[in-house]
């Protein structure tokens, strides 16, 4: 117990890095995923095919391998960045595919008549998407979007293996130092992850209630 309480600052620092990873990678991949979903339903065959290829490749690759690519292949191509940035890149690349599919499910749930009505008043593809389809699509997929976000939060732990001082890697260091209290140290680590994931779940319920517009 004291192993945890005496080292709270280490946990808090780790938590802060995890939170930062989540916020940056989450924002980037939600935005990129939405754009990718737009590409997958666009009238341009090349965009549709490219979008599908991206999703299939990234979704079916273990995330650790995506991290290896970001951390070891990019430097070989002459791109030298911090491990934190590589972790952001890896998480963003990977979760873009998942956000894309969640958003696309929402788009498919919007009645085709909505897009027809938008086209009939002269809106183009992008305008129809931004003003009519996406606002309705995103509301209907709040729970799956939050699922992806929670998965992303937990995947930040992979960054510990690549030298990012986030929550898990700080906890590992702590477990080595306090080897007689490993159970406490790891138990507390789980609790700290819950500090991020439980509010994400609550946010989902709040948004769902707030955004419902259908009778």
């Amino acid at each position: 117990m004291s192993a945890v309480l005496d080292n709270l600052p280490i946990y808090v620092t780790g938590l802060a890095w995890t939170l930062l990873l989540t916020l940056i990678a989450g924002s980037v991949s939600l935005l990129a995923g939405t754009l990718l979903a737009a590409a997958r339903i666009s009238p341009v065959p090349l965009l549709r095919a490219g979008g599908a290829l991206y999703v299939h490749v990234l979704r079916n690759t273990p995330i650790t391998i995506v991290f290896f690519f970001a951390a070891f292949v990019l430097p070989q191509l002459g791109i030298s960045l911090s491990y934190f940035t590589f972790a952001v890149i890896a998480l963003s690349l990977y979760y873009t595919a998942f956000f894309c599919e969640a958003v696309r499910a929402g788009i498919n749930a919007v009645s085709p008549g909505q897009a027809e009505a938008a086209r009939a008043i002269g809106l183009g593809f992008g305008q129809t998407l931004c003003h009519v389809i996406l606002p309705q699509a995103l509301r209907s997929v709040v729970p799956p979007l939050i699922n992806v976000l929670i998965a992303l939060i937990k995947s930040t732990a992979v960054a510990s293996a690549f030298g990012v001082a986030e929550l898990l890697s700080n906890a590992e260091a702590l477990a080595n130092a306090e080897s007689n209290a490993v159970l406490w140290v790891l138990g507390a680590t789980c609790l700290f992850y819950l500090l991020l994931t439980v509010p994400a779940g609550l946010l989902a319920s709040y948004l769902e209630a707030k955004l419902v517009f259908n009778s």
């Binding site: 008549g113 003003h131 009519v132």
Partner: peptide
């Protein structure tokens, strides 16, 4: 799109934009 905007269309299932008020529906175009 420009030519479409010159021909009004009314659908069997109304197809009003479900997330917008009537006023927003009418002003969007």
């Amino acid at each position: 799109a420009r030519l479409r905007s010159e021909v009004g269309m009314v659908f069997q299932s109304f197809n009003l934009f479900a997330h917008m008020t009537l006023l927003q529906n009418v002003t969007l175009g």
